[in-house]
């Protein structure tokens, strides 16, 4: 990472310095899963399990998060629901992960049903059509308005899942860094940012609570086999050892990152905009973003474009 030189102190928002850098994100494939259940609680329970341990494709082969709660009138079956976004490098991988995860976490969870949330997507992966085999030929299907749904008999009653799920091009790895005076300030700012960002549809924050404390760099300085290792330039405790190689100014004692995956650029921008705005508060020194010099990911989100032109009071 190499942001210090490019940072310009000229941009400021609500008294917080916005470094003139950009978040570098990657092309991924995304899908939206709508889980409904008899109560919002059960829908959310299934969604939480489905999205658990899905923080980074590097470690989990999938990035996923809860997108939104859906009111009953908006879901396909008229019950309360939760939508989940999932991201992987390609459609095949996405299908495999969905089959595993829905099979283990939604199929198993009382009263739930599972629908495709991207009906207009042209690319489709077969999920329900594979999970139906759990029905051991006792399953049946329904065909409604051009879509097939599978009904799999289970001990409780019946599990309903749509046969295919839409897959579209998506973006993973949008991010922002909150550089704060102390750990409390960093955490409060991050929490505020997450709350604001979660209001945006089309994105998820795949890390626990939406916040990452262990930002990483590509590879390692000392262990050859590590794919990624701690982002030393942003570790306040290493400022002394790294000296000028540290990206942090003296007053920064804690950094937190928020990673955003989204279905399209606009959604990520909207989320980052909301996040930056919310994070600019007392105790925060600067907002920055992570990138690899622009060489690895083709999607760049420049912070200066995300800040309102006129700082609000």
């Amino acid at each position: 990472m190499d942001t210090k030189e490019q940072a310009s102190p000229l941009i400021e928002h609500k008294g917080v310095r916005i470094e003139d850098t950009f978040a570098e994100a990657f092309g991924m494939r995304g899908a939206r899963v709508v889980i409904t259940a008899r109560s919002p609680e059960w829908a959310r329970t299934a969604a939480q399990s489905l999205t658990g341990f899905a923080t980074s494709v590097i470690g989990c082969k999938l990035e996923a998060g809860i997108e939104a709660d859906w009111p009953a009138r908006e879901t396909p079956d008229g019950r309360p629901g939760v939508s989940v976004l999932v991201f992987a490098f390609d459609a095949d991988g996405l299908a495999k992960r969905l089959i595993e995860r829905i099979g283990q976490t939604v199929l198993t969870c009382p009263t739930t049903a599972c629908f495709d949330g991207l009906p207009d997507a042209e690319d489709r992966v077969n999920v329900g059509g594979m999970l139906r085999h759990f029905g051991d030929r006792f399953q049946s299907s329904k065909f409604l308005d051009g879509k097939r749904y599978w009904r799999i008999p289970v001990m409780e009653g019946e599990f309903l899942i749509e046969e295919s799920f839409g897959v579209r091009k998506a973006i993973g790895g949008g991010n922002m860094l909150i550089l704060a005076r102390d750990a409390d300030a960093a955490l409060e700012a991050a929490e505020a940012a997450v709350r604001a960002m979660r209001g945006v549809r089309g994105i998820v924050l795949p890390f626990p609570g939406g916040v990452v404390r262990s930002g990483s760099k590509v590879g390692a300085r000392h262990y050859k086999k590590m794919i990624a290792s701690t982002n030393d330039a942003y570790c306040p405790t290493l400022k002394g050892r790294l000296g000028p190689e540290s990206a942090l100014s003296e007053e920064v004692n804690s950094v937190l990152e928020i990673v955003v995956d989204g279905l399209d650029r606009a959604a990520i921008e909207a989320a980052l905009r909301a996040g930056v705005d919310a994070a600019c508060r007392a105790g925060v020194v600067a907002i920055s973003a992570g990138n690899y010099g622009g060489k690895l990911g083709k999607h760049h989100f420049h912070l200066r474009e995300l800040v309102p032109a006129k700082p609000e009071a």
Partner: peptide, 17 residues
Amino acid sequence: ASTYSPTFLGLYAQRLK
């Protein structure tokens, strides 16, 4: 067979509403 609430009927109910 049994007495239950078939989830899929919700789909039809929404559609027919």
